[in-house]
C-alpha cells in the first residue's frame, strides 16, 4: 500500500535520513521505533511531502507522493496526525474536526463521520463548543486523532500520540489506535513507547541515527536481545 524506498533527507547541510526503506501493507499496524532525533518525524513528514527527499521515492497506492505538493496528499487517502497534536488552538473542537474534512468525499459525508467519531469519543461530544487550546493533553490528542479520521483515510500515520500523556491516557490512546485499525484503516505508528506498541503491531522497524537497522514482526522484536537492551531496559 505504502512503499518507501531509499530515502535520503537533508535539512540544509545536515543529512538526517540515510537510505530509509520500508513498506506498509493494507490492513496492517506498522510501528516505526526509535529514540529522540533518530529521524522518525522526518520520515513521516517526508511521506506526507512536507519535506522533500534528495534521493528516494514514496509511493502510495501507485502515486508518487514525493512529486506532489503536501496539501494534495490527503486527497489520495493518507492522513497524518502530527507530533505535538498541532490543533488549531482558537478553534472549537467541532471546527477542528470540520477542517479535517475538506476533501470532496469527506465533505459530503461530514455529518455522518462527525456522529461516528462522537460515538467513539463521547468526551469530545461534551466539549463540542470548547476551544481546543483549553482542553487537557489527552483530550487534545483525541481531537487530533479524530481530525485525522475526518478525511476518511485509507492509511493514517500517528506521530508519537502518547507523548506527554498520563499512563491511563496512553493506554486509552493505544486502544483507540487498535480500534481504528479494526475499522479497516491501515496504521503507521511512530513511537518511543515500546511496551504497548510491539504487543499490538503486525510488523515493526527500528530507526537509529537516520538508518533502518532492524525489521521484523512484533513478536520477533519482543524476543530480540538488542531491542530488550536498548528499548525495553531488560
Amino acid at each position: 500500500m505504502l512503499k518507501v524506498e531509499g530515502l535520503n533527507v537533508s535539512y540544509g547541510d545536515l543529512q538526517v535520513l540515510w537510505d530509509v526503506s520500508f513498506e506498509v501493507k493494507e490492513g496492517e499496524i506498522v510501528v516505526l521505533l526509535g529514540a529522540n532525533g533518530a529521524g522518525k518525524s522526518t520520515t513521516l513528514k517526508t511521506v506526507s511531502s512536507l519535506v522533500k527527499p534528495t534521493v528516494g521515492s514514496v509511493e502510495f497506492l501507485g502515486v508518487r507522493l514525493d512529486r506532489i505538493p503536501s496539501h494534495e496528499v490527503i486527497n489520495y487517502g493518507l492522513a497524518h496526525v502530527p507530533e505535538g497534536r498541532r490543533l488549531f488552538p482558537d478553534m472549537t473542537v467541532e471546527e477542528n474536526l470540520i477542517v479535517g474534512s475538506l476533501t470532496r468525499e469527506a465533505k459530503s459525508k461530514r455529518k455522518k463521520t462527525l456522529e461516528w467519531l462522537y460515538d467513539i469519543f463521547p468526551r469530545l461530544r461534551e466539549r463540542i463548543k470548547q476551544p481546543t487550546g483549553t482542553l487537557s493533553g489527552g483530550e487534545q490528542q483525541m481531537v487530533a486523532i479524530a481530525r485525522g479520521l475526518m478525511s476518511l483515510p485509507k492509511l493514517i500515520m500517528f506521530d508519537e500520540p502518547s507523548l506527554g500523556l498520563a499512563p491511563i491516557m496512553v493506554t486509552e490512546i493505544f486502544k483507540v489506535v487498535e480500534m481504528v485499525n479494526r475499522e479497516g484503516v491501515t496504521v503507521l505508528l511512530v513511537e518511543q513507547n515500546v511496551h504497548h506498541t510491539l504487543a499490538m503491531c503486525d510488523r515493526a522497524y527500528v530507526l537509529e541515527n537516520g538508518r533502518i537497522t532492524l525489521s521484523g514482526t512484533g513478536e520477533e522484536f519482543l524476543n530480540n536481545d538488542h531491542i530488550k537492551e536498548a528499548y525495553l531496559g531488560i
Binding site: P82, R86, L87, F88, V99
Partner: peptide, 18 residues
C-alpha cells in the same frame, strides 16, 4: 475556516489539504 486554520498553524493546515 481554512483562513483561520492557516493563521493558527499553517503546517497543520497543509496536512488537512489546505
Amino acid at each position: 475556516r481554512s483562513i483561520r486554520a492557516v493563521s493558527q498553524d499553517s503546517e497543520a493546515a497543509e496536512l488537512m489539504g489546505i
